[in-house]
Design a protein around this nucleic acid. Structure first.
Length: 112
DNA sequence: CGAGTGACCGCAA
DNA sequence: ATTGCGGCCACTC
């Protein structure tokens, strides 16, 4: 039983807090999508909110590891996709000329 | 408190 | 394959 129940102990009153927790436990060598993150929070169709949270939530969370369902880098990322690409490379993640995460399906973070 | 907006997603032509 | 449209919920102003 270990700490795989992190989500269960979350008493997040808002989706935002949940997203933060999820991002906090997101491995540095993996990526996730807005949709998956929202789905984990309990709202499969709340992908937009996750994006809004990322936009407004200027915390120290690794938002650059967030990509869209197509495995592509975010369009509205501050600094552009090139900036996000650089950040991803720092974490050992690479993407092609189409701004797509390489081996995206394998890099996709899978909750325990 | 009310209205608008959004770093998205999925489906249809 | 690409382009366009609507919809979902929460957050901000």
């Amino acid at each position: 039983m270990a700490r795989s129940n992190i989500l269960n102990e979350l008493t997040a009153t808002s989706l935002r807090d949940k997203v933060y927790e999820l991002m906090a436990q997101l491995p540095n060598n993996k990526v996730t999508t807005y949709g998956d993150l929202a789905a984990m929070a309990g709202y499969p169709y709340a992908a937009r909110i996750v994006g809004g949270i990322a936009h407004n939530g200027a915390l120290d969370l690794p938002w650059h590891r967030l990509v869209n369902a197509k495995g592509g880098l975010a369009v509205g990322f501050p600094g552009g996709q090139e900036a996000q690409k650089q950040l991803l490379e720092q974490d050992g993640i690479f993407c092609d000329a189409q701004w797509r995460i390489i081996d995206f399906e394998e890099r996709r973070w899978k909750p325990v």
